[in-house]
């Protein structure tokens, strides 16, 4: 017992100060893309050619990155001769609208809060049922990590629950495989309305690397209306937390 208490003291306090303080992120973190349209070489489309998921759009000489498809893999950065594309360390990527994820530089419109009526029903808590539907266990792991002492999701009144009956909504990871389609729909309908749908990761938003496979549905919005998109492959835990807090109007 004394040993356990001593160990408790030695392990120390781990909870980060986010959202009050600014969190420390790895210097090589790939967050919101940086697009310098002026550096784009006319007639060049190498970024479009190398992108594994077709995330890059090129209309005339205007480059856009669909961060709902982007794997943040650097293939485009390596291919671009003019250095028009890069990544910042800005982890705030979540959005309530699919269109807003198509980013071509400038200010990014992050997610906004749910409508007042829904927020009033939820009160100060949000209970979510997580469904992995073809997720590779990376998104799942970084959703799970929010429950650790580092992020301490409970302090925001957010909790992942075992039953959809106890949930205010579902959080889906993975491209929604054909073999999980029924289970996703059943779980969704088992949650009482108004129910929220959150798509976490490139797969759940667009199919990710599995776009257009006949075995998947190209993401959850092919089946259900989505309230919050959290991009990344996988999203950094701070990206997910930031998105959830914005949805609740806490940021």
């Amino acid at each position: 017992m004394i040993r356990a208490i001593a160990e408790r003291v030695r392990q120390g306090k781990r909870t980060i100060s986010f959202p009050k303080g600014t969190p420390v992120v790895p210097d090589r973190l790939r967050g919101l893309p940086v697009i310098d349209q002026a550096r784009c070489t006319p007639g060049c489309s190498r970024c479009v050619d190398v992108c594994p998921t077709g995330a890059i759009g090129l209309v005339g000489q205007k480059v856009s990155v669909d961060i709902g498809k982007c794997l943040f893999c650097l293939d485009c950065v390596a291919a671009c001769p003019g250095g028009a594309i890069g990544f910042s360390q800005d982890f705030r990527l979540a959005s309530g609208s699919r269109e807003a994820l198509v980013y071509s530089g400038g200010e990014f419109r992050p997610a906004c809060a749910l409508e007042e009526r829904t927020r009033r029903i939820l009160g100060r808590s949000l209970k979510l049922r997580e469904i992995s539907a073809g997720g590779c266990n990376a998104c799942e792991a970084d959703v799970n990590v929010l429950g650790t002492t580092v992020f301490d999701l409970g302090r925001f009144g957010i909790q992942f629950v075992a039953s959809p009956r106890h949930a205010d909504g579902i959080l889906v990871t993975g491209p929604v495989t054909a073999n999980m389609r029924f289970a996703v729909m059943d779980t969704y309908h088992a949650a009482p309305p108004p129910r929220i749908v959150i798509a976490v990761g490139a797969c759940a938003i667009s199919g990710g690397p599995y776009i257009d496979h006949k075995e998947v549905s190209n993401g959850v919005d092919a089946l259900l209306p989505v309230d919050l998109y959290i991009p990344g492959c996988p999203p950094h835990p701070l990206t997910i937390l930031d998105g959830l807090l914005r949805l609740l109007g806490r940021l």
């Binding site: 992995s132 539907a133 491209p175 495989t177 073999n179 289970a183 599995y210 496979h213 998947v216």
Partner: peptide, 11 residues
């Protein structure tokens, strides 16, 4: 199992 099948080997 099989719920997670994404067709990797085929692709």
């Amino acid at each position: 199992l099989g719920y997670q099948h994404r067709g990797v080997e085929r692709a």
